[in-house]
């Protein structure tokens, strides 16, 4: 099987770009090839951002956005309603999403497997800011099983120190445990 492609949808300040970075590190930790990059303009907090992550057993050579993702990873619950979020999603696709309220139905027909997590309240409770990156990494690991929880935990010390590290470990673990997973 070729490499898999993940597209992140978030807003500046939520940590989608950081999460992409840490996910690439976690895949690399497992000996896989991985690469990712974000797209954002001069605007910062609150503006829509996208990031793209590719990983697998083949070196990642493409330096282009992802138009047909195997997985969409949504950090901003508002973007669940946005049709562009699902553009090009492959059939039998996967969605990992931060939610405000529980989803009563699949938001797009191509979704085969879906993980939902109320990440914002967890981030607010533990970190005091709505930076959901680490919680969403836990949810991603739980939903997709493409990366081990241990690999995510192993790379966190490269990104956080001391108390902030401890708190983000809790975020990853709670994200992993508290994700509701749905399968067709």
């Amino acid at each position: 099987m070729g490499n898999l492609e993940i597209r992140l949808h978030g807003r500046g300040g939520q940590g989608a770009v950081s999460a992409a970075d840490m996910l690439v590190a976690a895949f690399t930790q497992e000996g896989k090839y991985a690469a990712g990059f974000p797209v954002f303009g001069s605007e910062r907090r609150g503006a829509p951002t996208q990031a793209f992550v590719r990983f697998g057993d083949e070196p990642v050579r493409e330096k282009t956005k992802i138009y047909h993702p195997h997985c969409i990873w949504v950090f901003d619950p508002m973007q669940i309603q946005t049709p562009m979020t699902y553009a090009g999603l492959k059939q039998e696709g996967t969605m990992v999403t931060n939610v405000g309220q529980p989803l009563t139905e699949k938001p797009h027909e191509n979704i085969n497997r879906m993980g939902t997590i109320k990440a914002t309240p967890i981030a607010m409770e533990i970190l005091g800011i709505p930076a959901v990156s680490t919680c969403m990494l836990g949810a991603f690991a739980a939903t997709t099983q493409w990366v081990e929880l241990d690999s995510v935990l192993a790379i966190l010390p490269d990104y956080f120190k001391e108390k902030l590290l401890d708190k983000n470990i809790v975020c990853v673990e709670r994200g992993f445990k508290e994700t509701d997973i749905f399968e067709r």
Partner: peptide, 12 residues
């Protein structure tokens, strides 16, 4: 190196 595409490209 291409800005954004490489300046922000994360890889090993």
């Amino acid at each position: 190196y291409d800005g954004f595409y490489l300046s922000y490209l994360r890889e090993a």
